[in-house]
Design a protein around this nucleic acid. Sequence first.
DNA 1: CGTGAGGTTGAAACCACTCAAGAAGGGTGG
DNA 2: CCACCCTTCTTGAGTGGTTTCAACCTCACG
Lengths: 260, 260
Amino acid sequence: MADSDGGVIDLQRLRRSCSECSLRTLCLPAGISGDDLAQLDRVVRSRMPLDAGDALFHAGDAFEHIFVVRGGCLRTAQPADDGAEQLIGFHLPGELVGLEAISDGRHYLDAVALERTSVCAVPFTQLEQVASSVPGLQHQLLRIISREMAHEQRHLVALGRRVAEQRLAIFLFSLSQRLQAAGYPGEAFHLSMSREDIANYLGLALETVSRLFGRMAEDGVIAVERRDIRILDRVRLSELAGQPDCGPDPQGGEASSGPL
Amino acid sequence: MADSDGGVIDLQRLRRSCSECSLRTLCLPAGISGDDLAQLDRVVRSRMPLDAGDALFHAGDAFEHIFVVRGGCLRTAQPADDGAEQLIGFHLPGELVGLEAISDGRHYLDAVALERTSVCAVPFTQLEQVASSVPGLQHQLLRIISREMAHEQRHLVALGRRVAEQRLAIFLFSLSQRLQAAGYPGEAFHLSMSREDIANYLGLALETVSRLFGRMAEDGVIAVERRDIRILDRVRLSELAGQPDCGPDPQGGEASSGPL
DNA sequence: CGTGAGGTTGAAACCACTCAAGAAGGGTGG
DNA sequence: CCACCCTTCTTGAGTGGTTTCAACCTCACG
């Protein structure tokens, strides 16, 4: 999703602090400044970028860090005995990964980069300590966690639809909104995940996803060229998704407007 | 789920403190004692029990409290324009409700009691304040939130299965484990939700759920009598669910064992 | 004892899945 | 630069599980 910057490893970047990060208003530092931000900065560690296919963690690994996606895209999936897996989430810039492992102290998901992806690692124990002394950080952490739950719940809504086209519409609509929130164009974007991943994510066969892309393109709702998507008719897409278009013109419908 | 105690409103009970609550080891007070627990106790408010069908909150309501189920069962659902809704979760004793509304400051789900249900209400702002001064509470709050995310993710896994029987098996298996965690028998229990709710929760038609109960009973996996369920063959149920039986005999399989 | 909500059961239609083959890149090595 | 391979995606045809529509049952309740 949205090109990670070039191929050269920029060591300068790895040292970049939260205060200089373009995602700071979305991420943990939101609403924090001065000395408090410095405290946070001291525990956050940038990591070397992951290449596509690289794992951030595996099921069974000890839980030590919360991760924040800074650029690129990750997928988390629950492996099954027979090698099958269920895709749990795609994670875009500004989003947190690893929260579900707090309670066990151990990951039960695999997290893998779908493209060149950079993340910040936040040692959980230290994060808790800083959050205790910086109420603004605690608040922002809870806000972000809540946002992640809302993402998951939209995924649940998608999977609950019986008609495959609705599921895909919800997926595309939600992805568009999340990309926009992360500062990328929401109308035209590149899918970093395969048809197979989308199918798994939506509980469909990959052939169905492929056919659906074709049909939605025929209908003029979207344009598809391999993994490049352009939303041509946002209203129709939101109708398919069964959700009010809370896009550029949020017309005050407070009650029924879903989560991001 | 599990009878809420009688019908008489026990005012004494409404004043009962966390330190006397049977759920305290599952709930926010876990690992907290003494003066810290007293601080928490001061902000937690028991509520008059809800009757079946009563709403705890509606989509559109301002978010002010986190709720903890003390007894009974709640369902949360996302309403849609056309009156349809997607069921998001069932909430058993010891579980939190309302977390997804933190980020918006507004609920977008409806929460309704499925039977006579008592809850504690925790004003969120005050909870944050106490959590700042009581690190153990902050930690426990994050642990519980993580547990709730794990519940949701198991729901995702269920909805991702293509075969209806697997979805129902995962639902029953998961419900059994959660009831056990809450201190109720996990082998035999009463469903407080209708077939329609289960179907909605699993993305199926209610007739399919009905037929599935019949088939699983024929196969000797469970016994069904109206809403009373008894698990007869836990191994076969867990196989259907596609998950190792992490029941009474957890055989050390760390990596592949799913969340609760 | 009527009534209605909730649940079961049956038959037919349909949508999505499976199996299968082919097309379209993208990468590698000669 | 082209040939080749491999992965990914598309497209087609047939099958089957789930949905839909409909009737009937059962129990709780007034």
